[in-house]
Nucleic acid binder design. Structure first.
Lengths: 193, 193
DNA sequence: TCTATTTTTGACTAATTAGTACAAAATTAA
DNA sequence: TTAATTTTGTACTAATTAGTCAAAAATAGA
């Protein structure tokens, strides 16, 4: 396999594209800005990444894989995996204003595109469903091991958690106080006993 | 005051513009589509409504006034005003898929524009803060009258309610089952005793 | 060195965007 | 009837949009 070698940093190009899409959303991110941010030329962009939509889908999938692999690794490694899940929410509360404004990549996408692009909406929908399912599986497991003593239905708890996730990712854009957000998380996670 | 009278229905023009912005968001709504939907001509549009952004701001304010006036009226008229607040959430759970996909006008706006347009984001932020404050005032009042017996801090409860609102308005786009959403609302509103 | 393969480069297109200009038509008060 | 006022309709602009294309450049292997 010969050919002129790529001169841009592929990992960084993906990271920068993901970050830009996450911050500004699919529609408000122009190809011009993507190309600049990713550090390549117009032709190379379309040659290497297909189209703006292709890039978004692949960037999202890459982000999802990285995030879930890491979460599953942490859950497996922990002796109290429910604490890993709880810390997901406490981490949100600790974010800076810039991070607050980024919000949830999936939630942002669904909100912006649910009446615009069915394909991208479905990808983001599936992400949240997978996340809820990770919560569900862990809650069920922790109820078996005794880490959790609550007898509340695991599905209801996981559904409530994904809803908490969705809520905080908007609420923290409006209310940036870390103490207030922490108090909210305390209050909401009190059911996980 | 002389002058040629308007031939388009002003109320309906506002309603249609609001609805379109609500469904598709500020950026994804083009002036072409606005003009068509509002039933007027390009010249009349800019003459009567200024600019796309002016129209959005005025449409949002009009929507906000209508919604909050109605809510305050209901709270005043009811003997159990906390039931009015509870029904806000149960009503969300009962929506059709199309209504689910519309979501919250304010939440949509914040999500789409928080890194794009500070002015429109602030208007939508204030809307959610006002809503949370209506919750707060009512909870405080109902704790005094005895309608609520819980001693949980009124601010924490109202904060939790606005977060529930934000969450459900995304969650219901992903999980459209009315029973599941009702169960979530039941579970979350159990603190209002 | 030659060749096949791949990437880079930058100018190009066609469509869409928000907004403007302005004359003609319509309406009403005086 | 007329002067004042407003809407209408349409052609226009300037900027931005996503995406295309062909030629030049760089490599590995024969």
């Amino acid at each position: 396999m010969a050919g002129r070698p790529k001169i841009f940093d592929e990992q960084k190009a993906w990271d920068n594209a993901t970050n830009l899409f996450w911050e500004k959303g699919f529609d408000a991110t122009s190809t011009d800005e993507l190309i600049r941010t990713m550090g390549l030329q117009r032709g190379s962009f379309y040659h290497s990444f297909g189209s703006k939509k292709d890039l978004f889908m692949n960037a999202f999938t890459r982000y999802e894989t990285l995030a879930f692999d890491e979460l599953r690794r942490q859950l497996k490694a922990s002796k109290k995996p429910m604490n890993v899940i709880k810390s997901i929410f406490y981490d949100l509360a600790k974010c800076s204003i810039e991070e607050h404004n980024k919000g949830c990549f999936a939630g942002n996408t669904i909100t912006a595109l649910s009446n615009i692009d069915a394909e991208l909406t479905e990808i983001a929908n599936n992400h949240l469903k997978r996340m809820e399912n990770i919560f569900f599986e862990q809650i069920k497991a922790s109820q078996k091991t005794g880490e959790l003593t609550t007898t509340t239905d695991a599905r209801l708890l996981s559904f409530s958690l994904i809803n908490l996730w969705n809520g905080i990712n908007i609420t923290r854009k409006v209310y940036t106080s870390q103490e207030d957000l922490k108090a909210l998380v305390d209050f909401q996670l009190a059911v996980l006993i």
